[in-house]
Design a protein around this nucleic acid. Structure first.
Lengths: 152, 152
DNA sequence: TTACGATCTCAAGCTAACTTTAGGTCAAGG
DNA sequence: CCTTGACCTAAAGTTAGCTTGAGATCGTAA
Protein backbone atom coordinates (compact mmCIF):
# COMPACT_ATOMS: atom_id res chain seq x y z
CA UNK A 1 0.00 0.00 0.00
CA UNK A 2 1.14 3.55 -0.57
CA UNK A 3 0.49 5.09 2.81
CA UNK A 4 0.51 3.80 6.31
CA UNK A 5 -2.98 3.64 7.74
CA UNK A 6 -4.33 2.70 4.34
CA UNK A 7 -5.95 -0.52 5.43
CA UNK A 8 -6.93 0.75 8.84
CA UNK A 9 -10.45 1.43 9.99
CA UNK A 10 -9.51 4.79 11.46
CA UNK A 11 -7.71 7.64 9.78
CA UNK A 12 -5.37 10.35 11.02
CA UNK A 13 -6.30 13.99 10.80
CA UNK A 14 -4.10 14.71 7.82
CA UNK A 15 -5.85 12.15 5.69
CA UNK A 16 -9.24 13.42 6.73
CA UNK A 17 -8.05 16.85 5.72
CA UNK A 18 -6.90 15.71 2.30
CA UNK A 19 -10.04 13.73 1.65
CA UNK A 20 -12.37 16.58 2.50
CA UNK A 21 -10.31 19.49 1.33
CA UNK A 22 -10.39 21.33 4.63
CA UNK A 23 -7.33 22.33 6.60
CA UNK A 24 -6.12 20.28 9.50
CA UNK A 25 -6.56 23.29 11.72
CA UNK A 26 -10.17 23.57 10.68
CA UNK A 27 -10.85 19.97 11.62
CA UNK A 28 -9.36 20.51 15.03
CA UNK A 29 -11.53 23.57 15.29
CA UNK A 30 -14.62 21.58 14.38
CA UNK A 31 -13.78 19.00 16.97
CA UNK A 32 -13.40 21.69 19.57
CA UNK A 33 -16.85 22.90 18.61
CA UNK A 34 -18.25 19.42 18.92
CA UNK A 35 -19.01 18.79 15.26
CA UNK A 36 -16.78 15.74 15.07
CA UNK A 37 -15.22 13.49 17.62
CA UNK A 38 -12.00 11.51 17.58
CA UNK A 39 -10.23 8.75 19.41
CA UNK A 40 -6.61 8.94 20.36
CA UNK A 41 -3.81 6.68 19.26
CA UNK A 42 -1.28 5.32 21.69
CA UNK A 43 0.84 8.36 20.99
CA UNK A 44 -2.03 10.78 21.62
CA UNK A 45 -2.74 11.47 17.98
CA UNK A 46 -6.30 11.86 16.74
CA UNK A 47 -7.95 9.03 14.86
CA UNK A 48 -11.16 9.54 12.97
CA UNK A 49 -13.70 7.21 11.51
CA UNK A 50 -13.86 7.04 7.77
CA UNK A 51 -17.46 8.12 8.02
CA UNK A 52 -16.21 11.42 9.33
CA UNK A 53 -15.20 12.25 5.79
CA UNK A 54 -18.88 12.48 4.99
CA UNK A 55 -19.56 14.23 8.22
CA UNK A 56 -17.08 16.94 7.32
CA UNK A 57 -18.38 17.05 3.78
CA UNK A 58 -21.83 17.60 5.12
CA UNK A 59 -20.55 20.53 7.13
CA UNK A 60 -19.13 22.07 3.99
CA UNK A 61 -22.32 21.66 2.03
CA UNK A 62 -24.40 23.06 4.84
CA UNK A 63 -22.08 26.01 5.13
CA UNK A 64 -22.50 26.74 1.49
CA UNK A 65 -26.19 26.92 2.13
CA UNK A 66 -25.59 29.52 4.74
CA UNK A 67 -25.96 27.52 7.93
CA UNK A 68 -23.84 28.56 10.84
CA UNK A 69 -21.71 26.01 12.61
CA UNK A 70 -24.09 25.98 15.55
CA UNK A 71 -27.02 25.10 13.34
CA UNK A 72 -24.95 22.47 11.61
CA UNK A 73 -24.06 21.03 14.95
CA UNK A 74 -27.73 20.75 15.73
CA UNK A 75 -28.35 18.94 12.46
CA UNK A 76 -25.46 16.62 12.99
CA UNK A 77 -26.65 15.85 16.47
CA UNK A 78 -29.10 13.41 14.97
CA UNK A 79 -26.27 11.47 13.44
CA UNK A 80 -24.54 8.81 15.51
CA UNK A 81 -20.96 9.41 16.47
CA UNK A 82 -18.98 6.26 16.88
CA UNK A 83 -20.64 4.25 14.18
CA UNK A 84 -21.08 4.80 10.51
CA UNK A 85 -24.40 6.49 9.80
CA UNK A 86 -26.95 4.56 7.81
CA UNK A 87 -28.44 5.65 4.54
CA UNK A 88 -31.60 6.45 6.42
CA UNK A 89 -29.73 8.73 8.77
CA UNK A 90 -28.36 10.70 5.88
CA UNK A 91 -31.61 10.81 4.03
CA UNK A 92 -33.33 12.43 6.95
CA UNK A 93 -30.71 15.02 7.61
CA UNK A 94 -30.39 15.78 3.93
CA UNK A 95 -34.07 16.46 3.64
CA UNK A 96 -33.60 19.33 6.06
CA UNK A 97 -31.03 20.77 3.74
CA UNK A 98 -33.43 20.35 0.88
CA UNK A 99 -36.01 22.38 2.72
CA UNK A 100 -33.42 25.02 3.33
CA UNK A 101 -32.59 25.15 -0.33
CA UNK A 102 -36.24 25.49 -1.23
CA UNK A 103 -36.67 28.34 1.21
CA UNK A 104 -33.69 30.14 -0.16
CA UNK A 105 -34.84 29.73 -3.70
CA UNK A 106 -38.25 31.07 -2.82
CA UNK A 107 -36.66 34.07 -1.21
CA UNK A 108 -34.41 34.72 -4.15
CA UNK A 109 -37.29 34.35 -6.49
CA UNK A 110 -39.28 36.91 -4.55
CA UNK A 111 -36.41 39.32 -4.46
CA UNK A 112 -35.93 38.93 -8.18
CA UNK A 113 -39.56 39.65 -8.85
CA UNK A 114 -39.47 42.76 -6.76
CA UNK A 115 -36.28 43.86 -8.36
CA UNK A 116 -37.73 43.38 -11.81
CA UNK A 117 -40.79 45.34 -10.86
CA UNK A 118 -38.63 48.03 -9.46
CA UNK A 119 -36.58 48.28 -12.61
CA UNK A 120 -39.62 47.95 -14.79
CA UNK A 121 -41.73 50.65 -13.27
CA UNK A 122 -38.82 52.81 -12.33
CA UNK A 123 -40.70 53.66 -9.20
CA UNK A 124 -37.92 53.81 -6.71
CA UNK A 125 -40.64 55.02 -4.48
CA UNK A 126 -40.01 54.23 -0.87
CA UNK A 127 -43.67 54.13 -0.11
CA UNK A 128 -44.48 51.73 -2.89
CA UNK A 129 -41.34 49.74 -3.54
CA UNK A 130 -41.35 46.53 -1.53
CA UNK A 131 -37.72 45.95 -2.26
CA UNK A 132 -36.78 48.97 -0.23
CA UNK A 133 -39.10 48.18 2.58
CA UNK A 134 -37.31 47.97 5.91
CA UNK A 135 -40.35 46.20 7.33
CA UNK A 136 -39.15 42.87 6.01
CA UNK A 137 -35.84 43.29 7.66
CA UNK A 138 -37.06 43.84 11.19
CA UNK A 139 -37.94 40.16 11.28
CA UNK A 140 -34.76 38.30 10.40
CA UNK A 141 -32.14 37.86 13.04
CA UNK A 142 -29.14 36.75 11.04
CA UNK A 143 -25.78 38.44 11.04
CA UNK A 144 -25.70 41.82 9.39
CA UNK A 145 -27.35 45.05 10.35
CA UNK A 146 -29.48 45.09 13.44
CA UNK A 147 -32.61 47.07 13.17
CA UNK A 148 -32.98 49.96 15.50
CA UNK A 149 -36.48 51.25 14.92
CA UNK A 150 -38.45 53.19 17.42
CA UNK A 151 -42.02 51.99 18.11
CA UNK A 152 -43.71 54.75 16.12
CA UNK B 1 -44.60 69.33 10.99
CA UNK B 2 -43.62 66.83 13.63
CA UNK B 3 -39.85 66.94 13.46
CA UNK B 4 -37.35 69.62 12.69
CA UNK B 5 -35.60 69.00 9.41
CA UNK B 6 -38.84 67.69 7.97
CA UNK B 7 -39.03 70.14 5.11
CA UNK B 8 -35.30 70.25 4.51
CA UNK B 9 -33.51 68.81 1.51
CA UNK B 10 -30.88 67.14 3.64
CA UNK B 11 -31.42 64.84 6.55
CA UNK B 12 -29.49 64.12 9.75
CA UNK B 13 -28.02 60.74 10.45
CA UNK B 14 -30.71 59.72 12.91
CA UNK B 15 -33.43 60.15 10.36
CA UNK B 16 -31.50 58.23 7.76
CA UNK B 17 -31.15 55.49 10.34
CA UNK B 18 -34.85 55.38 11.08
CA UNK B 19 -35.82 55.42 7.46
CA UNK B 20 -33.54 52.58 6.50
CA UNK B 21 -33.66 50.55 9.66
CA UNK B 22 -29.92 50.48 10.16
CA UNK B 23 -28.15 51.74 13.25
CA UNK B 24 -26.55 55.15 13.33
CA UNK B 25 -23.23 53.54 14.07
CA UNK B 26 -23.57 51.40 10.97
CA UNK B 27 -24.15 54.44 8.79
CA UNK B 28 -21.06 56.11 10.18
CA UNK B 29 -19.24 52.89 9.48
CA UNK B 30 -20.47 52.85 5.89
CA UNK B 31 -19.33 56.40 5.44
CA UNK B 32 -15.92 55.51 6.77
CA UNK B 33 -15.80 52.72 4.21
CA UNK B 34 -16.78 55.10 1.47
CA UNK B 35 -20.21 53.72 0.71
CA UNK B 36 -21.97 56.99 1.46
CA UNK B 37 -20.85 60.53 1.80
CA UNK B 38 -22.17 63.40 3.88
CA UNK B 39 -21.94 67.14 4.21
CA UNK B 40 -21.50 68.86 7.50
CA UNK B 41 -23.84 71.32 9.13
CA UNK B 42 -22.61 74.51 10.75
CA UNK B 43 -22.28 72.57 13.99
CA UNK B 44 -20.26 69.77 12.36
CA UNK B 45 -23.13 67.32 12.18
CA UNK B 46 -23.58 65.04 9.21
CA UNK B 47 -26.23 65.85 6.64
CA UNK B 48 -27.25 63.30 4.05
CA UNK B 49 -29.20 63.54 0.85
CA UNK B 50 -32.61 61.95 0.85
CA UNK B 51 -31.42 59.77 -1.97
CA UNK B 52 -29.03 58.19 0.47
CA UNK B 53 -32.00 56.36 1.92
CA UNK B 54 -32.09 54.37 -1.29
CA UNK B 55 -28.35 54.09 -1.32
CA UNK B 56 -28.40 52.51 2.11
CA UNK B 57 -31.36 50.35 1.16
CA UNK B 58 -29.42 49.11 -1.81
CA UNK B 59 -26.59 48.15 0.49
CA UNK B 60 -28.97 46.10 2.57
CA UNK B 61 -30.44 44.29 -0.38
CA UNK B 62 -27.05 43.56 -1.82
CA UNK B 63 -25.90 42.24 1.52
CA UNK B 64 -28.82 39.90 1.63
CA UNK B 65 -27.64 38.54 -1.67
CA UNK B 66 -24.29 37.83 -0.12
CA UNK B 67 -22.21 40.68 -1.48
CA UNK B 68 -19.47 41.97 0.74
CA UNK B 69 -19.23 45.66 1.47
CA UNK B 70 -16.25 45.97 -0.84
CA UNK B 71 -18.19 44.55 -3.73
CA UNK B 72 -21.12 46.74 -2.91
CA UNK B 73 -18.85 49.72 -2.88
CA UNK B 74 -17.72 48.79 -6.35
CA UNK B 75 -21.32 48.60 -7.51
CA UNK B 76 -22.23 51.87 -5.90
CA UNK B 77 -19.25 53.53 -7.49
CA UNK B 78 -21.27 53.88 -10.66
CA UNK B 79 -23.86 55.92 -8.84
CA UNK B 80 -23.35 59.65 -8.49
CA UNK B 81 -22.74 61.03 -5.04
CA UNK B 82 -23.96 64.53 -4.56
CA UNK B 83 -26.97 64.32 -6.79
CA UNK B 84 -29.99 62.09 -6.81
CA UNK B 85 -29.42 59.10 -9.08
CA UNK B 86 -31.63 58.75 -12.10
CA UNK B 87 -33.90 55.86 -12.86
CA UNK B 88 -31.40 54.76 -15.45
CA UNK B 89 -28.62 54.72 -12.89
CA UNK B 90 -30.62 52.40 -10.70
CA UNK B 91 -31.75 50.21 -13.52
CA UNK B 92 -28.21 49.46 -14.52
CA UNK B 93 -26.94 48.73 -11.08
CA UNK B 94 -29.98 46.64 -10.30
CA UNK B 95 -29.42 44.48 -13.31
CA UNK B 96 -26.13 43.41 -11.80
CA UNK B 97 -28.00 42.26 -8.75
CA UNK B 98 -30.38 40.39 -10.97
CA UNK B 99 -27.52 38.51 -12.52
CA UNK B 100 -26.26 37.68 -9.08
CA UNK B 101 -29.63 36.33 -8.11
CA UNK B 102 -29.77 34.20 -11.22
CA UNK B 103 -26.36 32.77 -10.49
CA UNK B 104 -27.30 31.92 -6.98
CA UNK B 105 -30.49 30.27 -8.05
CA UNK B 106 -28.65 28.18 -10.58
CA UNK B 107 -26.22 27.08 -7.94
CA UNK B 108 -28.94 26.21 -5.50
CA UNK B 109 -30.77 24.34 -8.16
CA UNK B 110 -27.71 22.30 -8.94
CA UNK B 111 -27.07 21.55 -5.30
CA UNK B 112 -30.65 20.46 -4.89
CA UNK B 113 -30.44 18.13 -7.81
CA UNK B 114 -27.31 16.54 -6.50
CA UNK B 115 -28.78 16.26 -3.07
CA UNK B 116 -31.88 14.58 -4.43
CA UNK B 117 -29.77 12.17 -6.38
CA UNK B 118 -27.75 11.48 -3.33
CA UNK B 119 -30.79 10.76 -1.23
CA UNK B 120 -32.45 8.88 -4.00
CA UNK B 121 -29.69 6.46 -4.81
CA UNK B 122 -28.43 6.29 -1.30
CA UNK B 123 -24.97 6.13 -2.73
CA UNK B 124 -23.10 8.26 -0.30
CA UNK B 125 -20.18 7.13 -2.31
CA UNK B 126 -17.35 9.53 -2.23
CA UNK B 127 -16.14 8.43 -5.60
CA UNK B 128 -19.48 8.88 -7.28
CA UNK B 129 -21.34 11.49 -5.29
CA UNK B 130 -20.80 14.93 -6.77
CA UNK B 131 -22.24 16.56 -3.72
CA UNK B 132 -19.36 15.36 -1.64
CA UNK B 133 -16.79 16.22 -4.20
CA UNK B 134 -14.13 18.56 -2.87
CA UNK B 135 -13.13 19.35 -6.43
CA UNK B 136 -15.82 21.95 -6.70
CA UNK B 137 -14.67 23.66 -3.63
CA UNK B 138 -11.10 24.22 -4.61
CA UNK B 139 -12.34 26.85 -7.03
CA UNK B 140 -14.45 29.20 -4.97
CA UNK B 141 -12.70 31.80 -2.90
CA UNK B 142 -15.47 33.06 -0.68
CA UNK B 143 -15.37 33.16 3.07
CA UNK B 144 -15.39 29.79 4.78
CA UNK B 145 -12.91 27.01 4.75
CA UNK B 146 -9.78 27.39 2.70
CA UNK B 147 -8.77 24.38 0.77
CA UNK B 148 -5.43 22.88 1.56
CA UNK B 149 -4.93 20.15 -1.03
CA UNK B 150 -1.61 18.84 -2.11
CA UNK B 151 -1.02 18.60 -5.88
CA UNK B 152 -1.44 14.81 -6.06
C1' DT C 1 20.08 6.21 15.52
C1' DT C 2 19.11 10.00 13.13
C1' DA C 3 16.06 12.54 10.41
C1' DC C 4 11.87 14.36 8.89
C1' DG C 5 7.16 14.85 8.18
C1' DA C 6 2.86 14.51 10.67
C1' DT C 7 0.77 15.65 15.02
C1' DC C 8 0.12 17.76 19.49
C1' DT C 9 -1.24 21.90 22.64
C1' DC C 10 -1.91 26.68 23.62
C1' DA C 11 -2.29 31.11 22.71
C1' DA C 12 -2.55 34.73 19.79
C1' DG C 13 -3.82 36.80 15.35
C1' DC C 14 -7.02 37.80 11.42
C1' DT C 15 -11.20 39.63 8.53
C1' DA C 16 -15.81 41.29 8.21
C1' DA C 17 -19.12 44.15 9.83
C1' DC C 18 -20.49 46.36 13.22
C1' DT C 19 -21.39 47.85 18.33
C1' DT C 20 -19.98 49.82 22.59
C1' DT C 21 -17.77 52.97 25.56
C1' DA C 22 -16.07 57.31 27.04
C1' DG C 23 -16.03 61.94 27.04
C1' DG C 24 -17.49 66.05 24.75
C1' DT C 25 -20.72 69.26 21.75
C1' DC C 26 -25.10 71.07 19.56
C1' DA C 27 -29.80 72.71 19.53
C1' DA C 28 -34.17 73.57 21.40
C1' DG C 29 -37.50 73.88 25.19
C1' DG C 30 -38.82 75.46 29.92
C1' DC D 1 -29.56 79.04 32.73
C1' DC D 2 -30.35 74.21 32.70
C1' DT D 3 -31.66 70.00 30.82
C1' DT D 4 -32.23 66.71 27.31
C1' DG D 5 -31.83 64.25 23.19
C1' DA D 6 -29.34 63.93 18.96
C1' DC D 7 -24.59 64.09 17.42
C1' DC D 8 -19.43 64.04 17.39
C1' DT D 9 -14.67 61.42 17.61
C1' DA D 10 -11.53 57.85 18.67
C1' DA D 11 -10.56 53.61 20.29
C1' DA D 12 -11.62 49.29 21.92
C1' DG D 13 -14.71 45.24 22.00
C1' DT D 14 -17.58 41.46 19.68
C1' DT D 15 -18.78 37.13 16.94
C1' DA D 16 -17.82 33.76 13.49
C1' DG D 17 -14.70 30.91 11.58
C1' DC D 18 -10.55 29.85 11.11
C1' DT D 19 -5.18 30.41 10.61
C1' DT D 20 -0.62 31.12 12.45
C1' DG D 21 3.13 30.62 15.56
C1' DA D 22 5.97 28.40 18.95
C1' DG D 23 7.82 24.64 20.96
C1' DA D 24 7.35 19.69 21.83
C1' DT D 25 6.40 14.77 20.48
C1' DC D 26 5.22 10.79 17.28
C1' DG D 27 6.24 7.50 13.96
C1' DT D 28 8.47 5.60 10.22
C1' DA D 29 12.08 5.11 6.88
C1' DA D 30 16.94 4.96 5.81
Amino acid sequence: MTTKTEGDRTIPIGMLARRTGVAVSAIRFYEEKGLVRSFRSAGNQRRFLRSDIRRISFILIAQKLGLELKEIERELASLPQGRTPTVKDWAQISSHLRARIDDQMALLSQTRERLDQCIGCGCLSLTKCQLFNPGDRAADQGPGPHVDLEPA
